[in-house]
Design a protein around this nucleic acid. Structure first.
Length: 478
DNA sequence: TTAGGGTTAG
């Protein structure tokens, strides 16, 4: 009974049927996916027409299931299905679905798939809309295929379509991210020629590309050209340039930029915000110039700009890295951050815990984490996960269990992953902590949490070895 | 269009 209960919760890959869904949901998905897959098989020419007659309500798990079935021998059919599904009214692929499609259909490894499918549309005289092309381009985007995206852009006229700003922006961004700024600029000029006006997103992509390539002057010139084209230079774009300056290592120039942004004559369009200041703070911290980073914090405070979680975490990390012994600086910083507002004491303590663990200052990390719980502050998910994992690696399973209980009372348990649960359960079992193991196993079953496959066999073995009748009895009543 | 640090689900 006990083993049955445990194995019921084993990860899907441990069982024959691949699904993370409930039995009812699974059967619906399979039947819908089966019907769609059968329709796909039924017609090799223009399968989109055939699919339309399937009359199946599309959802993410059904689409996933169909694509999986098309792997590994029917990638082209799977891709056509995915594109067709995305064009159906009432359904829109999430970014997650695009990444799944790229993964299952191995698009990055087989970029020709994209071309083959678009060519097939032409040969079979399929109906191709702007929406169809947008999905194809989004797949290129997900797979980071700039050349293929450009090829798709060139295919628009073949289907009687004109590429729009969204299509151009996507292709331009791919080339800019890839570092091919000359192609990005060519495409931007081309937009002008066909009466498409490059917008803020177009410019920001290319400016970002120049900054990543360390070409700050080119980025700066482009931002001036942007104003001429009627696009207002804004905080985001200006911050991008500032980020490029920071990355180039010229902090004096970065401060000049920041000063320019702070001037009132910009009309407020380019006033620095928390992200802008954080970029500069981060750059100073990375250069171990923490005092100057702290001065930027004062400067943002003076201007009424509130630090956020990222500002806090970057600064806390900087201070923790700088000071081997002195925790006074850390508490002074946390006091200041909380007084300024915008960030809570819990967030600061959580960041400090994370930074201390990463710097292998475990004792201080544990102290600050426990202090947080005692004071009734709620730690964040990452701090909890790192602390529990560390306790497990130190084989302090009982301590870990009691801390887990405390954390659960603070209501952050849902962000702790199943792997930590599995490691803790295994540790408790192997160290004879049957009472704790029982309680943890019960919570895990209640939460429908899956056990890590690599641990389940050992957990079962450990449970067998203890021969603890009481444990068996209690677990079997869950 | 703008970020950071682990996982989960879709």
């Amino acid at each position: 009974m006990l083993l049955h209960l445990i194995s019921r919760r084993v990860s899907p890959s441990f069982r024959s049927q691949p699904s993370k869904l409930s039995a009812l949901r699974f059967s619906t998905t399979v039947s819908a996916a089966e019907r769609l897959y059968d329709h796909l098989q039924g017609c090799k020419n223009n399968p989109e027409k055939e699919l339309a007659s399937a009359k199946v309500k599309l959802d993410a798990s059904t689409i996933n299931e169909v694509i999986k079935r098309c792997s590994p021998n029917q990638f082209q059919l799977g891709l056509r299905f995915f594109i067709w599904a995305g064009t159906q009214s009432g359904h829109r692929h999430s970014p997650y679905m695009y990444s799944k499609a790229c993964e299952f259909l191995e698009i990055r490894a087989n970029p020709d798939l994209i071309k083959d499918v678009v060519e097939a549309y032409g040969k079979e005289e399929c109906f191709v809309s702007i929406k169809t092309m947008r999905i194809v381009l989004s797949l290129c985007n997900q797979a980071k295929l700039a050349d293929e995206a450009l090829w798709v852009l060139r295919k628009y006229p073949d289907f009687g379509l004109s590429a729009d700003t969204i299509a151009y922006n996507l292709v331009i961004r791919l080339f800019a991210d890839k570092g091919d700024l000359s192609m990005a600029e060519t495409l931007m000029k081309e937009m002008d020629c066909i009466d498409l006006c490059p917008d803020v997103m177009t410019y920001t992509s290319v400016i970002n590309g120049f900054c990543n390539a360390g070409k700050i002057d080119e980025a700066w010139n482009l931002s001036k050209a942007m104003s001429k084209h009627g696009c207002v230079l804004n905080t985001v774009t200006f911050s991008r340039i500032l980020e490029g300056v920071c990355k180039s290592g010229d902090m004096e120039r970065a401060l000049e930029f920041l000063g320019e942004m702070e001037k009132e004559d910009g009309g407020g369009f380019i006033s620095p915000n928390a992200v802008t200041y954080t970029l500069v703070i981060q750059a100073f911290c990375e250069k171990k110039r923490v005092q100057e980073a702290l001065m930027i914090l004062d400067r943002m405070g003076d201007r009424g700009c509130l630090p956020n979680r990222v500002t806090a975490s970057v600064l806390i990390q900087g201070v923790v890295e700088e000071n081997d012994e002195d925790v006074m600086d850390l508490s002074k910083l946390i006091d200041k951050l909380v007084k300024l507002g915008g960030v809570s004491l819990s967030e600061c303590f959580s960041s400090a815990t994370v930074s201390l663990i990463r710097l292998k200052k475990w004792e201080e990390a544990e102290k600050i984490f426990r202090l947080m719980l005692v004071q009734g502050n709620r730690p964040d998910g990452l701090a909890c996960s790192l602390v529990l994992r560390e306790l497990c690696s130190l084989e302090r399973y009982q301590d870990c269990f009691f801390l887990y209980e405390e954390i659960e009372k603070a209501n952050v348990i849902s962000t702790i992953d199943s792997d930590i649960h599995s490691v803790l359960l295994l540790g408790l079992c192997e160290h004879g902590c049957s009472w704790e193991a029982t309680k943890l196993a019960k919570w895990m079953l209640d939460k429908k949490m899956r056990l890590n496959v690599s641990h389940v066999k050992r957990i079962i073995q450990a449970l067998k070895k203890t021969g603890d009748e009481d444990l068996m009895r209690r677990l079997s009543t869950i």
